[in-house]
């Protein structure tokens, strides 16, 4: 565990908590893509199956359980509890265009042709594109509440910090996970345009992010 990895995990946790509390306290999921949140719940489910097969550390187990519980709780808030506020007409990204290629690629390019390993690979590939329905929704409506942009900032920052963690681990331990690193680079690239808008607009005091 290095400082980049720890800050990455904290950033990930902060992002998920921001989104959950935003929906819970405002009793509304307006502007939030339910599709992206279902994809993230699927990411955690398929990645953390090793909770049942191997123990790594208390930290590892607790974080995995927290991510799983919060992701399903968020999906519950969007699709059941505050369903009336869900903007399904703006959440029109076709997720099958992500799921089919990602599933196909995880069968072709993995470390071991076993169910748990293919599902882990699937989760890594899927995570790299799971935010696209949310970004698509913001592009379509042309705006996002600032609290939603804080969520996106921490979610993007998390994988960028993991990139630094992988550089660190490569130099200190010789650790190199090609699938995670390539996907992590792709994932971070998707956030670059958003990072630019976040710094130039939201951090300058605008109450909302509006697209030009």
């Amino acid at each position: 565990m290095n400082v980049f990895r720890l800050l990455g995990d904290v950033s990930h946790l902060v992002a998920i908590i921001i989104l959950f509390l935003k929906i819970f306290r405002s009793k509304s999921c307006a502007g939030i893509s339910g599709k992206s949140q279902v994809l993230f719940a699927l990411v955690f489910t398929t990645r953390y199956l090793d909770l049942f097969t191997s123990f790594i550390s208390i930290y590892n187990t607790v974080m995995k359980v927290v991510f799983l519980v919060l992701s399903y709780a968020t999906v519950y808030l969007i699709y059941l509890r505050f369903r009336s506020s869900y903007d399904s007409e703006s959440d029109t990204f076709r997720v099958e265009f992500l799921l089919v290629p990602v599933a196909g690629l995880s069968f072709l390019e993995n470390y071991d042709f076993t169910p748990i390993e293919i599902l882990w690979t699937f989760s890594i590939y899927l995570e790299s594109v799971a935010i696209l329905p949310q970004l698509f929704m913001i592009t379509k409506t042309g705006e996002a509440e600032s609290i939603t942009t804080h969520y996106l900032f921490f979610l993007g920052l998390y994988r960028a910090l993991y990139l630094a963690n992988w550089v660190w681990r490569y130099h200190t331990e010789g650790f190199f996970d090609q699938i995670a690193v390539v996907s992590g680079v792709v994932q971070t690239i998707f956030y670059c345009d958003f990072f630019y808008l976040y710094v130039t607009k939201v951090l300058k005091g605008n109450s909302k992010l509006t697209l030009p």
Partner: peptide
């Protein structure tokens, strides 16, 4: 082995 790569990460 490679298949254990990344499993200590989240």
């Amino acid at each position: 082995s490679d298949s254990q790569n990344g499993k200590d990460e989240l």
